[in-house]
Write a protein that binds this DNA or RNA. Structure first.
Lengths: 341, 341
DNA sequence: CTGTTAGCGCTTTCAC
DNA sequence: GTGAAAGCGCTAACAG
């Protein structure tokens, strides 16, 4: 593998000169030597070592992104797309993506290790939480990072997030426009940041249209189809005229649970119940009826995140930009006007 | 960020000595200095720079793994799990995973770039094909790699693959044991390596049980639910007594297509048709009926791949080990005895 | 314009 | 046992 020395020898110049042409120091090298160096580079097949450059600049040109443990068989519906587009964006900016694993409890030591070994120049976080220890740590250490998702409002840092609140509010409007008035919601347990925004959007929408929200209309549960099934069971204990005619769920898997229970009750969808999910998980379009759900603009988000983080690394100015992107409602077949208006 | 020099100064020794204790050169340093160096390391909070070490050893301690844009033939349903477990295994071996993107046509320049810039020490390939240009290139360049999936039999390299042939053969047996005799198959277009192995397993099984395979019983098409729908339409053009009572598909998405078309025909599953998929894609357990399908032991595969590649990098011996792991049939609800035996 | 030189953080001969 | 010094591949002052 040729080094800069080989090129220098081949071109009959010093390594400094080669370095100059490599780094486009226009003023520092005459056009003729420039050309001969370029030719020498081509002749010996030289490509600069990113390691050598990294040592010099104290940079690794690597962006760290953590994969949190997956309960086997469980899905993070967008993780793979997200990684793909982030890697792509990173490469366009001259970086690469380092994917690492990290325990959910006590994640900080892993981040610390990556920093102290100079493995990465910055991090992209996702799955942020209230009082997220990673953010607290990185902020205190002044290490560059951006996150996909918000955290404590009083913390100053750059993030990109999906404006799920606005999205779900519009989902309510969509259902209202179809004629629904009894609209219910299934969320995650309290404390999930993104889950709470989605719920908030539901409450916003209901208030906006002066629709009542009986306590039973907001059900909560863990990430499982069972949560959806249980929610529907609760509602079907109500007298028929109090049952919701439409449901919005915090995520597709729970929506599917609702659909399964609806089938078990002999309901015909979407005639007897309209359902809206969130995330557009793989395959949800193939359920019957095809699930109406929200798609997050993952390619765009990945792009923005990398751009932000790259600017932090390069500029070293502690910017803190906040970007909210709108999710898009994919209107498929799981919503219809209510049976009896 | 403290360097080895800081430690040396703190401990009142030379950098060489610090390096010795860092690398556990037992014979080279007395126990007492060893201790004082260790203390100094702790006091200044020193962690060796992986970049500095890398430059010295001409190693990056990074394993490259490409994310291809989504296509058929790919292990896409399990890509995220795969990445997670590989990253995990890599970290246990002192490596990290570099995920990069790569066009399906003309992938070689991307690999070449990663090699010439000394970005990675080795690659893990997946989605291998017949005459795979990446394998040809890496083999010729003698660059360390292992692959998830086979390629040309005459090429000597290490791989791990799922023994889909044996798996699907057993799926046939499972259906035969249920009483089926008219079993059909839907595959990918010819030339997909993994698709062809799965088809071969079907043919093996059918021959083993002396079951006829009329030409129409093997349908092919791209990675889409439409392929499954079309296949069922073909079969339902046959007289009822010639229609298959069970179908094995090369992948879950196509199985779902079959299920959707079956529903459109008013069939009751699994009473009127048994279906087996492959890959255990997310959510397939939530379809009605829950899809019986094959699960690949992804954690195990990731682990073996990393172990193989790590041995190559370390040892530099050109091993070529071949590992086949069995997929596991997840018997759910989409198979039943045929209606009229 | 070009070359010499120091140095990034580390390992490893080779003297002492 | 320990340290001085060279060198991994590269960049950037500084001299000329």
């Amino acid at each position: 593998m040729p080094t800069i020395k080989d090129v220098a020898r081949e071109a009959g110049v010093s390594v400094a000169t080669v370095s100059y042409v490599l780094n486009n120091k226009q003023a520092l090298v005459s056009e003729s030597t420039r050309q001969s160096v370029l030719e020498a580079i081509k002749r010996v097949g030289y490509v600069p070592s990113v390691v050598g450059r990294g040592l010099q600049a104290n940079k690794s040109h690597l962006i760290g992104y953590a994969w949190h443990p997956i309960t086997y068989g469980q899905v993070n519906p967008v993780l793979d797309q997200f990684t793909y587009f982030m890697a792509h964006a990173a490469e366009e900016a001259g970086y690469h993506l380092l994917t690492f694993t990290c325990p959910l409890d006590n994640p900080v030591p892993v981040y610390e290790d990556l920093i102290t070994t100079r493995r990465v120049d910055a991090f992209v976080l996702s799955g942020t939480r209230q009082d997220d220890p990673r953010i607290a740590y990185l902020l205190e250490r002044r290490f560059p990072f951006v996150s996909f998702g918000r955290s404590n409002p009083e913390w100053q840092f750059s993030y990109v997030d999906v404006d799920a609140r606005a999205g779900v509010r519009e989902a309510v409007k969509y259902l209202v426009d179809l004629g629904h008035r009894r609209i219910a919601f299934v969320g995650w347990p309290e404390g999930s940041l993104s889950g709470d925004w989605r719920l908030q959007g539901y409450l916003d929408g209901m208030r906006e249209f002066d629709l009542p929200v009986p306590a039973s209309y907001v059900q909560r549960g863990v990430q499982s189809d069972v949560t959806g099934r249980q929610a529907l069971c609760r509602w079907w204990e109500l007298p028929p005229e109090q049952r919701p005619t439409a449901v919005i769920t915090v995520t597709d898997l729970i929506a599917i649970g609702v659909m399964k229970q609806a089938a078990a009750f002999g309901l015909v969808l979407p005639r007897d119940l309209s359902i809206i999910g969130f995330d557009n998980a793989p395959l949800v379009e193939h359920f019957t009826p095809a699930l109406t759900t929200f798609e997050q603009p993952i390619p765009e988000i990945g792009h923005i995140l990398v751009e932000l983080v790259e600017r932090m690394v390069r500029g070293d100015q502690p910017e803190h930009l906040q970007v909210l992107v709108k999710p898009r409602l994919l209107m498929r077949e799981s919503c219809a006007p209510p049976r009896q208006s």
